[in-house]
Design a protein around this nucleic acid. Structure first.
Lengths: 101, 101
DNA sequence: CACATGTGCAACCACGTTGTTGCACAGTAC
DNA sequence: GTACTGTGCAACAACGTGGTTGCACATGTG
């Protein structure tokens, strides 16, 4: 949970994640030019996202293809919903959608 | 948005927030003994939560009473829902609940 | 083989974060 | 006024983060 929120706290990282969600899997090298940082920086970001379970890396020949995962996002949303359900009708509705777990 | 996720990334901070959500407003001094850190540390955490809009501070005599706000939590949940809606049915349902904004 | 290209590793820097302690200051109570 | 208690401010240490660069290594391609 720590790792998930921490990963989402960086704007570049959120942008990388969105890109993977929208355009599908990609390599760090392919991703980097779309962002104002070096390839190495993107690799580090993908590492952080990976530690949080938000992306998976699969090797394909000499390339490493990164893909987004939604599971941790659901869990994060679930935490938010449960924490605030008592005080916010919208979050309470989300709890009913996601289940109390 | 950065500030909200960053604030939620720290476990102590999430615990403080939960405490405020469950037991209602409280002062930093009253809160501190419940956590394994000094009062000053709690004050700093409340400051971070405040910068993210997750708590508000209101002065009452010589005391400062902190209260939780759910608005940023809804926004964070909304970001998660919209980002992953395309790939996760649960998140897509949340988007319908929260509205596309 | 020789060459180009994608990855990985390491060092390094600047800066922010989390936590501490110590002390000053402001209200409240006697 | 004096004493107590809640806040605020500042300095400091330790550590993590985001970013860079440089170079080695692995894997395809001519």
């Amino acid at each position: 949970m720590d790792a998930v929120f921490a990963a989402l706290a960086d704007p570049t990282r959120r942008a990388v994640l969105q890109r993977l969600l929208e355009d599908g899997p990609a390599t760090a090298t392919a991703l980097a030019p779309a962002f104002p940082v070096s390839r190495q920086a993107v690799v580090k970001h993908l590492g952080v996202l990976g530690d949080a379970g938000l992306v998976t890396a699969t090797r394909d020949g000499r390339e490493v293809r990164y893909a987004a995962r939604t599971e941790p996002m659901v869990e994060a949303a679930s935490w938010l919903a449960r924490a605030g359900a008592q005080w916010d009708a919208r979050l309470a509705r989300l709890v009913r959608q996601l289940g109390p777990r």
